[in-house]
Computed example of a mutant assay.
Amino acid sequence: MQTLRLLPDSPGLARAARLLAEGQCVAIPTETVYGLAADARNGEAVARIYQAKGRPSFNPLIVHVADLAAAEALGQFDAQARLLADRFWPGALTLILPLQADSGIASLVTAGLQTIGLRVPAHSAAQALLRTSGAPLAAPSANASGRISPTSADHVLAADGGLRGRIAAVLDAGPCPVGVESTIVGWPDGRPALLRPGGIAAEAIESVLGQPLAAHHADPSAPSAPGQLTSHYAPKAPLRLNAEPQAGETHLTFGQPGPFSLSDSGDLAQAAARLFDLLRRADETGRPISVAPIPEHGLGAAINDRLRRAAAPRN
């Protein structure tokens, strides 16, 4: 794949918006770092983010929107959340909020959680693209997994740790002015907590709230925000992996058609996009669940990691 370098002018923004509408990934500038964006409503497009990055596990992704009104269509705001949004948006603050039931956000974005990370970026090119595309954009950092976050288009396209040839385009608006990821605040136990330090100082947030932010130590099996370990999604039913179907089970197939097919054609991006929804549907049958073998390479490693956690013994 040839990765285009687009300028943040009218033709470049229109081209980037078309690519996003087609389900492609486009690296975009924000004030923090360059993000690898895809339409957050399109599960297969979001799966391409994981595929391009070589991201080894499913983690919730931050969704970027143009303004507070767009954010309110996706997340449920209480008084404290709205106070922070009014003060710090647009800006380098991500809020972890309960997901609206009719949000339309792909389940892969939230890693099966009932919360969503939302941010309104303070970058003119990002704002222009959000308004041109009309889409909420899921966007982790635009770099190979585990490498240094990119703060310029050249970093995104670098031979070492970059994404040249793996994504459709990068919107080049020069260096990022903040250069570190957003601060993440959530309410995991009803109190505001610092889930990740970032581009806005915790002290500034505490000053607005009039109270200290609680320290939050993530449960490794259930992260509530990006930058933490993989979420543990466990169906109620027992789950067998690398399995042949048995009588009385709901069987998730891969590489062949069926009512619970992860991908008829054996496409790993499609399988990743469908995984959470199919696990939920299978669980609703009330029967034990089995899953066909998934290749342990590329995005398959992430799928298998998620399935192993889902199949782990319950306490």
Rank of each mutant, 00 (worst) to 15 (best):
Q2N: 13
D9Y: 10
A14T: 10
A17N: 09
E22L: 15
C25Y: 09
C25E: 04
E31C: 03
G35I: 04
L36V: 04
E44N: 08
E44K: 14
A45M: 11
R48D: 01
Y50H: 02
V65G: 04
A66I: 04
A66D: 05
D67R: 02
D67I: 02
D67N: 14
E72M: 13
A73G: 12
A81D: 05
L83Q: 15
R87S: 14
F88V: 09
L99I: 09
Q100V: 13
D102Y: 03
G104W: 10
I105R: 03
V109T: 05
T110S: 12
A111F: 05
L113Y: 05
A128S: 14
T132K: 13
S133Q: 08
A135R: 15
L137Y: 02
S141K: 03
N143F: 00
S145H: 12
R147C: 05
I148P: 07
P150A: 00
S152E: 02
V156K: 00
A159Q: 13
I167T: 03
D172H: 08
A173R: 07
V178W: 00
G179V: 01
S182D: 01
R191K: 15
A193C: 15
G198R: 01
G199F: 09
A201Q: 15
V208G: 05
P212N: 10
P220E: 12
S224K: 14
T230M: 13
H232P: 00
P238A: 12
P238Q: 07
L241Y: 09
E249R: 07
T250N: 02
S261N: 04
D267P: 11
A273W: 02
D277I: 03
D283Q: 03
I294G: 01
H297W: 13
R306I: 01
A310M: 08
A312W: 11
N315D: 14
